[in-house]
Design a protein around this nucleic acid. Sequence first.
DNA 1: GCGGCCTCTTCCGTTGAGCGGAAGGCAACC
DNA 2: GGTTGCCTTCCGCTCAACGGAAGAGGCCGC
Lengths: 250, 250
Amino acid sequence: MPHSPSGETVTSRALRVLATFSAQRRELTLSDLARLTGLPLTTTHRLVGELATWGALERDEQGLYRIGLRLWEIAALAPRSVGLREAALPFLEDLYEATHENVHLAVRDGDEALYVERISGRHAVSVVSRVGGRLPLHATGVGLVLLAYADVEVQERVMAGPLRRFTDRTVTSPPELRRLLAEVRRTRTAISPGYLENNALSVAAPVWGPAGDVVAALSIVVPISRAPGPFLPAVTAAARGVSRALGARL
Amino acid sequence: MPHSPSGETVTSRALRVLATFSAQRRELTLSDLARLTGLPLTTTHRLVGELATWGALERDEQGLYRIGLRLWEIAALAPRSVGLREAALPFLEDLYEATHENVHLAVRDGDEALYVERISGRHAVSVVSRVGGRLPLHATGVGLVLLAYADVEVQERVMAGPLRRFTDRTVTSPPELRRLLAEVRRTRTAISPGYLENNALSVAAPVWGPAGDVVAALSIVVPISRAPGPFLPAVTAAARGVSRALGARL
DNA sequence: GCGGCCTCTTCCGTTGAGCGGAAGGCAACC
DNA sequence: GGTTGCCTTCCGCTCAACGGAAGAGGCCGC
């Protein structure tokens, strides 16, 4: 039977194939892709073949598909990811060298924090963040900063939705989160002690854009046994440095 | 008139739209995209709309399109880019901290070196490389390493093609390049003094994969006034560290 | 060694998603 | 007000896309 029964476009289908990959499944067979997308095997075969020919996907000798370099090459032109990272890297490196802890740079995408950069020292506390990965706004340092300076609609939507509990310390009460966000705006920093992981404390600050909005958040993550105070000046300075590099008038 | 006169598929067209963006043109109007792809305005409008809806493209209030975060998020799952970078980062950071010079990690893609990571110090010599960017194999340190260990077909193809001259020092003679590659294999390092830029000297070493092949190259780039010798041990050690992290048996 | 199962590839008749020119709205400029 | 250029919407036409069927090949259990 010709043409998509659901009326779905070819472009949409091709993109859904790409979106099937995840941090947990970085390599998939043709059958995997068909099952996960719900597309007929023949259709998947044709679409996957086109994506592989162009370089969006790569197929190895065992028939496993992975996201291809060509896609990454194009995606690396995204101003809000690699572009932002390029501007921020000197300051992230400075902060890393001064502390040898985990350093993060994240942007808000919808109702989540999307990590565009992460530098972790060998001996830094283990954290779950991943470049290209997403984490919730309410339970991370960078997330709290991004949420505090987001439009009110975004804040209301996040607080209206379920606030997932990750540890005993996670803030899951909307009124409490509202107070926390007010404090973030007052101090222009966010401290997140064990909200996402029991053993990790995060100190974050906003990165301002040229239009006076907050375009990213920068943070350091240390063991929860550490006091946050000593890290505040360095994190704030790094964030301000990135802001200036982006053309913000502080 | 229905359907592509050239018989080109929808997927191919959509990918070509994405491929229109470049380091020189990170933001384009709808008309730009139509002109650059050669597609009719209506067709471009439809395809671009779909890409934007999904997040592969982002449109600002002025009607300028950019590569979207969603595409980068998917592309960040590419093992040969961000995956490789994750494994390599501790060693790249070590090399950077020890020298505060430019540190590169690149892979071979076709007949070019594609840069998956770059860490540059504030005072490091200025270099033209860019994360997500490509540079020629014969005129860069990482490129010489990647070429030296590539299949013979790749080597022959590169040497059969024009070897573009960038500086007076660029190796453009196939016999000379062949000798240089033999030297790279003998010493397991590549030294590239002023081949691409007059004022930059590069020292590179191979990164081995678990299958005993060279999967990437790592390098440091310093001012041409520096002697390469003192950097060799650190570059080699960093490359071996990355190799082990990738499961190579050295 | 053989049958069963699964993956992947190729074929091909059918048809509606995709095609793009035309028309028009809108904004900027003179 | 007229001109220019960009973007959006419409819509008649048609072939690229559709996916079931058939088959090749590999793996595994008996």
